[in-house]
Amino acid sequence: MSTSKQKIYWFCQFFGWSLLILVEYVAYVLELGFDPDALYLAIANIFLGITLTHLYRLMIRRWNWVRLPFFRLAPRVLFSVLVMASIMTMLNLPIDRIIVPQRMVEEPWLLIGYIISWGKTMLAWVLSYTAYHYVEENRNAEIERILLKTSIRETEAKVLRSQLNPHFVFNALNSIRALVYENPAKAQQGITQLSNLLRNSLLADRRKTVELREEIKTVEDYLDLEKVRYEDRLRSNINLDGRTLFWQVPPMMLQTLVENAIKHGVSKAVGGGFVEVQSAVVADKLHITIRNTGVLGDKEASGGFGLANTAQRLELLYGPEASFHIFQEEDGAFGESVVCAEITIPTQSEGIFRRREEAIK
């Protein structure tokens, strides 16, 4: 229990028992006058009540009664109330016989009356504390479930963060190897770009999101390396809205989609094709569109793990407001088949626009 809760608990103990006993004592004084013995008994009752209920608290916490089902908890609570009421009766009844003997004559069921009277008081305390502790235990259990669920979602998100396709790395190395003698400067540039891609891939599991401008640099490095392989068969165009550059997106997500567009679209087209990336802010949401030459066909066959990965990562990071759709566009002006992938990401914070303004300055 935290220090603040302990202070509140002891304050309630002393204040509650003092108020209860002193009210009865004041009523006694108004009716029969001041009696020091009655005052001592009242003080003794305060400390005895605090002691008994505190022992009950220690017992219920040690044996975790609040985690028991109701049919097992109820008998324990009632028995505890009976024991505490009996102890209070054992203290008060003999002393009351001395202080107010005239009242003892008028009560036919004296012992039972005392136990019932103190039992009501103890039951009120026990029910209040048990109910509070029961609610707190359920709240803590719910918090633990939420934390566990969050931890699982975070683990899933780390697993789902994309890594570079090993086939791409192999092809890129072969392309760079071919350039070593033909164009050393371009080969050196290709090695730098591949190094950047590998570094970003390794860092992907350490960061939940990156700025769109950083992710686009990864996409540009990837496209440049693929152009070494496909040459004029691969055309690319990146058109970004300036307001979106500092928007947070999942790392390596766009690279995965662009890789998917080339692998299942451009590479299969006889005359090659194009990949186009656009971004815009619509209704306070980031919209990213990736268009490429190709035929969608079966999503599982044409997208594999990448498409399912993208949708699941967006769901884990942003919830239901984020979305991912991929569809076949109508044939263009030259009869070219085009596949379009659309990503929608909700606003995370106003900080993205503030960082953009600071960067511009």
Score class of each variant (00 low, 15 high):
A27F: 13
Y40L: 13
M84E: 06
F47C: 05
L41E: 06
M88L: 13
F70C: 11
M84T: 03
F79K: 03
A38S: 10
V81G: 02
M90K: 07
I46N: 02
Y28C: 00
T89D: 08
L39G: 07
G33C: 06
S86P: 02
I99T: 04
L41F: 08
N64S: 14
D96R: 13
L41S: 04
T51P: 01
N64R: 13
P69W: 07
P69L: 08
V81P: 04
A42V: 09
L93T: 01
G33S: 06
M88K: 01
L82Q: 00
V77W: 05
D35P: 05
V29T: 08
L52Q: 00
L55Q: 05
N64Q: 14
G33K: 08
P75T: 03
G49E: 03
I60T: 12
A85S: 14
L78G: 02
P36L: 08
D96W: 15
R57E: 12
E31W: 13
I60G: 00
T51N: 07
G49Q: 04
L52Y: 00
M59C: 11
L91C: 11
E31T: 15
D35A: 11
L55A: 14
V77L: 15
N92K: 09
R67I: 06
R57K: 13
R57N: 12
A42I: 08
D96Q: 15
L68R: 06
R76M: 12
A85G: 07
I98H: 14
M84S: 10
L41C: 09
F71M: 15
M59T: 12
D35H: 11
L58F: 15
M84D: 04
S80N: 01
L73M: 15
L52F: 02
A38V: 06
I50L: 00
W65K: 00
D96V: 15
F34C: 06
R67D: 15
I98G: 05
A27D: 12
T53H: 12
N45W: 10
R61Y: 12
D35L: 10
V29N: 07
T89S: 12
I46P: 02
L78V: 05
L55K: 08
F47M: 02
I46R: 00
M88E: 04
L55R: 06
L30S: 11
W63L: 12
F34Y: 12
P94L: 07
V66W: 06
N92G: 09
A42K: 09
T53Y: 09
I60A: 03
G33R: 04
L30E: 07
I43K: 01
P94I: 09
A44L: 07
L58D: 08
F34W: 12
F71A: 15
Y40W: 14
L82G: 03
L39N: 05
L39M: 10
Y40A: 12
R97P: 05
P94R: 05
V81N: 04
M90A: 14
I50R: 00
A74M: 14
D96G: 08
T89H: 09
D37C: 13
G33T: 02
S80C: 01
F79T: 08
R72L: 13
L82F: 12
F34P: 05
L32T: 11
I46F: 03
L78H: 05
L30W: 10
L68Y: 08
N45S: 14
R62C: 02
N64C: 10
H54G: 05
P75A: 08
E31Y: 13
M59G: 09
V29S: 06
M88W: 05
M90C: 14
L82E: 00
E31Q: 13
D35Y: 10
A44R: 05
R76H: 09
